[in-house]
Design a protein around this nucleic acid. Sequence first.
DNA 1: TTGTAAGCGTTATCAA
DNA 2: TTGATAACGCTTACAA
Lengths: 336, 336
Amino acid sequence: MATVKDVAREAGVSLGTVSNVLNGKGSVKSQNREKVYEAMKKLGFHYNMTASALRTKTTKNIGLIIPSIANPFYPELARGVEDEARKEGFTVFLCNSDREEEKERKYIDALLSKGVDGLILLKPKSSHEELRKLNESRPLVVEDWDYREDQELLTVSTDGYMAVIQGMNLLAGYGHRRIAFISGLMESPSGHGKMKAYMNSLEARNIRFRPEYLVYGDYTWNSGYSVTKELLRLETLPTAILAANDMMAMGAMKAIQAKGYRIPEEISVMGIDDIEMGKLCTPALTTILQPKYEVGVSAFCLLKQALDGENIPADKRHITLNTRTVERESVTYAQV
Amino acid sequence: MATVKDVAREAGVSLGTVSNVLNGKGSVKSQNREKVYEAMKKLGFHYNMTASALRTKTTKNIGLIIPSIANPFYPELARGVEDEARKEGFTVFLCNSDREEEKERKYIDALLSKGVDGLILLKPKSSHEELRKLNESRPLVVEDWDYREDQELLTVSTDGYMAVIQGMNLLAGYGHRRIAFISGLMESPSGHGKMKAYMNSLEARNIRFRPEYLVYGDYTWNSGYSVTKELLRLETLPTAILAANDMMAMGAMKAIQAKGYRIPEEISVMGIDDIEMGKLCTPALTTILQPKYEVGVSAFCLLKQALDGENIPADKRHITLNTRTVERESVTYAQV
DNA sequence: TTGTAAGCGTTATCAA
DNA sequence: TTGATAACGCTTACAA
């Protein structure tokens, strides 16, 4: 493998000059620049990023830890950060923590050892304290995190509260008043926000809250499925089910169809996320779009600024993206 | 950041000794070993893999290029290589070429520059010649590649031919004789194998081949959908549709349901792959399982042997994994 | 504008 | 079993 040294010798210039043309820094006579390019071509020179990384202490790698791979929401978000990262010449190490704190910690360690320049954590399990410490050693962006606890941390998220409000609005617009809600885990701000929105929305419409219509899943298809089976055993069935994410909504659909009810004629189903799969199932899922890809893009942009040592003003440290409703086939007028 | 040098000073031993305990090489007095551990803890030592990589010329990183992220088949396969890689202390850079030769080439270059120790390419677009050259510079494993062209290349794949044979057997067992086949791209050995199996299977059963029952998709849901819409315009409809992969089968299901036909009562649908989604849709998809995860595991194992400089005997250089049928809800007896 | 030399944090070699 | 020293391939002062 040819090195810069070889190239320098071949081109009859010095080491520093080669380095300069490689990095577009300093100024080098165009004549010499040409000579360098020729020499590189002739020798089949391959740039060694490892050496550069050692010297500059920057690898152009970042780490991205996602909580689940089974839920397409995260891969779609990850795509956003990867595309954006690639544009800026960064490569991303993707790790899946399976929502386990221990795994998350291990991956963080491994990534630091690999020398990533920065980290993006989606729905981290780590304690506030750990994240604060991590943030001191390396630029960090966290998704769906309660930044009121620490204004310093860079955060990005979607507006879970608004998502549910929008969902409830749509459902109410179709005349639904017996609306069940499949909540997700209550561990993140968006989880809490969604729940609060459900309650507020009922209240705003003077709909009596029925505890039996509020059920809990863990964002998996399976949980949506089994929790809906419970719902279907109720004396008075809901006319609509809103799930805190699409995966659970699709589990709900399956449970409903398995019981022989028709969607949406007999029961309407609505999700939140707008994952790709939602378009493909039958009936196609009506949902609230969360701009996952854009969240990913924003996360990387924020990280990039931190990496560049920019001082990000307080009002730009926390990004929240808006949701919007996507009507397809799984919601229609309530039967009376 | 504390370095080995700092640790050595703190522990009162030499650089080499610290390196030896770090790598479990050479022999070091257990007393000194303890001192080193203590010093590391005290100083909060973090191992710098970049430096190690520069010196040893091995990064413990590998590159994995997949042709599509929209088809869950590849992420599931990727998971197999990642899990196995992780076990051996390797990290993987995952890249998605979108089936574009140009992108594939760019990623290969980028990965080499990042200093990956080896590469795994799924359904590569690169020419035989390029792969051969690549293989000389770095250990390489390719998936679904016609190794008869080059016995040297390490390959791994599933048996596409057998998959279709098994599918046709199941369908025939349910009395189907008007079986349409949605073929995928003909660019890989498995693509060819599937097609051949369809033809052979018809012939073996004395079923007349109807050209209008053979249609072509590109492995996407959309292609399965639109091609099935064509199929449904035919004078005599098929009683069963076999698709070369699950994504197309699910597109077919949607097209059929959109036209108001019932699955499987009126038309049976069958896929190949057994991706996670297939369990979740309604009706659940009957399919031929391809051991994606295991393919991933095997690919890494093969790569690892090459990385270790083992001389792999000719009969172990090419791994083909078997498929098996998974019956769910989308296939039943043919209507007569 | 160019050349020289030191240094990044490891590992490997060789002598003690 | 240990210590000293060179080397990996690049970047970056600083001097020319």
